[in-house]
Design a protein around this nucleic acid. Structure first.
Lengths: 204, 204, 204, 204
DNA sequence: CATGAATGAGTATTCATTCAT
DNA sequence: AATGAATGAATACTCATTCAT
């Protein structure tokens, strides 16, 4: 049993190494240009081992995207009770921004979008996990703010969408097209103004 | 001269046919998976003729993207003088939606995003032409509305961004990940509510 | 008749232009790498005209080689009556060297050798025209020298061969392998010594 | 270790097979016309395996030429102490002739010459290895003969050049242009006479 | 269970040659 | 006679996947 357990852990470690190596290559080169032999090399396994763990390039790609999507959990954080709506939004933005960068979310979205026609379920899965996950987490936070009287009662599901939409247009959408996109100097002011718009409509 | 002119027109027709065939394949399969021989076949020319017109797959791809980008001129329309702000926004949305579908903009954006790492200038070009083009056209309309007193004076450049951001999040962003995305039944109400948000902040 | 003659001369001029352009390309790139379209461009004719004059690339190549071979007529000159054997050999060398360079003979030999397996008769033709032509001209000169008593009676056909062999080994053979081969500084002394060897055996 | 060693030997065997097959094709067709797929077929490997061993057609060609050049070691033999100069020259000629034919040197020289413009270093390498190697070996033999008093002291470097030049002109130079060149019936007599010329100049 | 050598189908690109004008 | 656009066959090279050891 111990032996088997050990084997299992070795096997799991290899699997993780493969996913890690594959993630780097897929995010960098996209699905079509990434090369299985390179994945094997970077993961320090043979191609045969690679195929023992993932039966095809598609399967590996799917595993990588699922893994990356699962990693993204940019919780908008537990609000401190005394937080104002504005303060919360700022904290949420900072937290989301951090996770976004750490998890390489922009690159993940790019590959998902690139594979829409060849792997529709995969792209849909990313959309539901990553994108909708955010909607839900933000909606929960908005609900809480309404409960505390920081915001007027309103359709928070819709609010989460357009709130994220405003921010995304400013900071994420351009990054999707420009690999080395940098936040502009006036990012904070712009975020502040977007919050103003939201509060003008839904502030208490 | 007549001969030359005729040759030219034949040549132009072939070029257009090639671009059309290539567009269909690139939008469907992406750059890497599209096959030059298929383009030639669909355009009813030989591969050699294809290469007479475009010196490489990359060059053809760029031409296709440029062509598609140039097609997208979803003018937000000349406002009728008596138009209310709300009416204008609705008209603009309808017009943009139409062009968006006709020109296959979603698919265009997908391929541009897919090629960010391999053809950064191309993706940037699409972003600036298609995406920023919209910002500018909407901003001009917003300026006009301010002038007419339909909106408060405000930073219309910023306003164009977040306005488009709200709409995009609702109708375009999901379509980016789901090939057969259909507008939801309540699309009009949602658009209306987004307009409300904008007017709450910037309405006269 | 005048019209026809004019047409003929225009046609001949084109033919010459084609041969000239083709020669440059074949000598530079060899048969396989030279491109018919380039020949046409350099000769300022269309490819169709090119094929009107030469029915295939092989035919053009053959015409070029024959033309080049015919051009090489490095007569060893009419000996001045009072010339010594040594003086004659020097003059002959100088004359041959000049023609060799002007007619690009080294490059010609290279292409002929390169095409031995694909165009055996052509290579043989070059050999007989260019190489054996030299043997014959030198042999005639040697015969004359024997007649004048400057050399012992001997097998001048053989003598021409080995005489040329010695010189070729020193100055031509290396150039065959090294495109930018330059005559060594001591070329004259070496030529002189080669002549000594010949005279040691066959001098009067 | 045994496994690895075995793999290595299999790999080496394939490599040798590839070189052998490639040599035959390159010598027959020259570089440009030889086809990689044919090499693979003749060597009983797939094209992919071929490319595992040699990263490009050029690399394969170079390996073939190096291999062939290395094979050519037509030692002019250790002179028997009592050998006369004439006897030595005859032995040397016979030995050189044998190697020349076995190693297909004429064909090797042809391809090297054919590739002067596209692969200058390669042609130069053949020249230095094969051609200059002969000079050096003959020069060493000449030096030994001088030491033994069979030849007068003289510039043996120069002597090796013109000696080889005479022989080459008679037997090799024609073969360069005519694939099926056969030694003439009077080859021995001609060789003998060439030796006479050398001895007339440098014999003791 | 791990290896890495071997596979062969697949693709962008070139070029000698032809033909409608 | 001249044009130049069009052809399609040919070829170097790649890569996902398998199998003998």
């Amino acid at each position: 049993m111990t032996l088997e357990a050990q084997r299992q852990s070795v096997s799991d470690a290899k699997r993780d190494g493969i996913i890690k190596a594959a993630q780097a290559l897929f995010l960098r080169d996209g699905f079509a240009k990434a090369v299985m032999a390179d994945v094997a090399r970077d993961a320090d396994v043979s191609t045969a081992t690679l195929y023992k763990h993932f039966e095809s390039k598609e399967a590996l790609f799917e595993a990588v995207v699922r893994h990356a999507a699962a990693t993204v959990q940019d919780d908008f954080g537990a609000m401190a009770p005394e937080t104002s709506a504005r303060d919360f939004f700022f904290q949420a933005l900072a937290s989301a921004h951090l996770v976004h960068q750490q998890a390489n979310v922009t690159a993940l979205l790019r590959v998902a979008i690139a594979e829409v026609s060849s792997a529709p379920e995969l792209a849909r899965n990313v959309f539901e996990t990553v994108v909708c996950g955010r909607y839900n987490r933000l909606q929960a936070a908005l609900d809480e703010m309404v409960r505390r009287g920081l915001l007027k009662p309103h359709d928070t599901a819709f609010g989460a969408r357009i709130g994220i939409g405003m921010i995304k247009e400013l900071f994420i959408w351009p990054a999707l097209f420009v690999a080395d996109f940098q936040l502009p100097a006036n990012a904070l002011e712009r975020a502040d103004e977007a919050i103003n718009v939201y509060l003008a409509a839904y502030g208490a």
